[in-house]
């Protein structure tokens, strides 16, 4: 049994075998708090190629956002610390770069879309000013040219009457439009990697679909690598090429998106899929994964999921499961992944 720490190759990617655009390798992030050291990320590895979409799935506290913030280099350090791991962008470990070099990447080559655009946009500046700032500061453009660019971008993310609205403030837009502005700002300088941290969580369901569509479309046009962080499995299926399911700071299953949907290889992924409400279950009680997410200060022994796992065996309590390789593109951190796949466990 071989472990496959990085879910690397991917059948849909045009660049299989090439050096990925972004590679997170055995990343560890911990926070020093008064109660002790919180290990938020414990050896996460994933890769994104150009034109590829990776969905990172997990509950709050699973470490998915912290990993993204580590990639962006926007963690507050201290209290955060990265004791181990690499984050390679086009082959260079960004954790070893100087602040100066890092800030040349941040926002320009790797950009991020945040969850709640109302709080993520500055309330006291116009949207045009905030989008144009990317061009003024990073490209040394004049105010007028930057404004022009801002209008172009607002049109590109399909904000109606962009020319008239460029001098409006964030609070004057609807939630969906605000998120479009956030997206326009993030793609301003044609980044190679775009990280979207729960970009649709704060939005209505109808608007969610539009925003996901927009992200997918922008990605196709510019061949960006997209990391989509979410806890909503429904959002993922249409957009993502592959999925990394995170639990307690680890990846518990990594696979092409359809494999996971068809037949999950980890009890936690299976639980997530089963908890999506379906029409044919109308009238029945909704399925929920029992128990609570683990306390990161006091992690369970062995497999972190064992207290909530319906298939728990004795060795789950004692042995930490490695990420078992199922196929070239698939891995599961469950001792009994075969049985989970075959449906013979439980």
């Amino acid at each position: 049994m071989v472990t496959n720490p990085s879910i690397d190759t991917h059948p849909l990617s045009a660049e299989v075998g090439q050096e990925p655009l972004l590679a997170v390798d055995n990343l560890h992030v911990e926070f020093t708090t008064r109660q002790g050291v919180v290990r938020a990320v414990n050896g996460v590895s994933y890769t994104v190629h150009a034109g590829e979409s990776l969905a990172v799935l997990g509950e709050s506290g699973s470490g998915k956002s912290v990993t993204a913030q580590a990639i962006m280099g926007i963690l507050d350090m201290p209290p955060a610390r990265i004791p181990k791991g690499e984050i390679r962008f086009r082959g260079t470990d960004m954790l070893k770069l100087s602040d100066q070099a890092r800030s040349q990447i941040r926002g320009q080559r790797i950009a991020m879309v945040f969850q709640d655009a109302l709080s993520a946009l500055n309330p006291v500046f116009t949207v045009g000013w905030q989008i144009g700032e990317m061009f003024r500061v990073h490209r040394g453009m004049s105010k007028r040219d930057a404004q022009k660019k801002a209008i172009e971008l607002m049109e590109r993310v399909r904000i109606p009457a962009a020319r008239q609205r460029v001098n409006d403030y964030p609070h004057q837009f609807s939630g969906g439009m605000r998120q479009r502005i956030m997206i326009a700002m993030s793609i301003a300088l044609d980044p190679e990697v775009l990280i979207a941290d729960e970009p649709t969580t704060a939005l209505d369901v109808t608007v969610q679909a539009q925003i996901m569509e927009l992200l997918a479309e922008l990605q196709r046009e510019s061949n960006m690598g997209l990391i989509l962080i979410t806890h909503d499995l429904g959002v993922v299926a249409d957009v993502a090429d592959k999925i990394a399911v995170m639990y307690a700071g680890r990846i518990v299953e990594g696979a092409p998106v359809h494999d996971v949907y068809k037949n999950p290889a980890h009890p936690y992924s299976k639980g997530l899929l089963d908890s999506i409400p379906r029409v044919d279950q109308k009238g029945q009680e909704l399925y929920a994964i029992k128990g609570l997410p683990p306390n990161l200060l006091d992690m369970p022994s062995g497999c972190a999921f064992h207290p909530r796992c319906p298939y728990r065996r004795d060795n789950c309590v004692t042995d930490v499961p490695p990420l078992y390789e199922i196929s070239g593109t698939r891995g599961s951190a469950c001792h009994y992944y075969r049985e989970v796949l075959d449906g013979t466990l439980g």
Binding site: Q104, G107, A111, F114, A120
Partner: peptide
């Protein structure tokens, strides 16, 4: 505030 984090993520000095 979130918008300060955004400004940092935009690569602002």
């Amino acid at each position: 505030a979130d918008y300060v984090r955004t400004a940092i993520a935009k690569g602002m000095p």
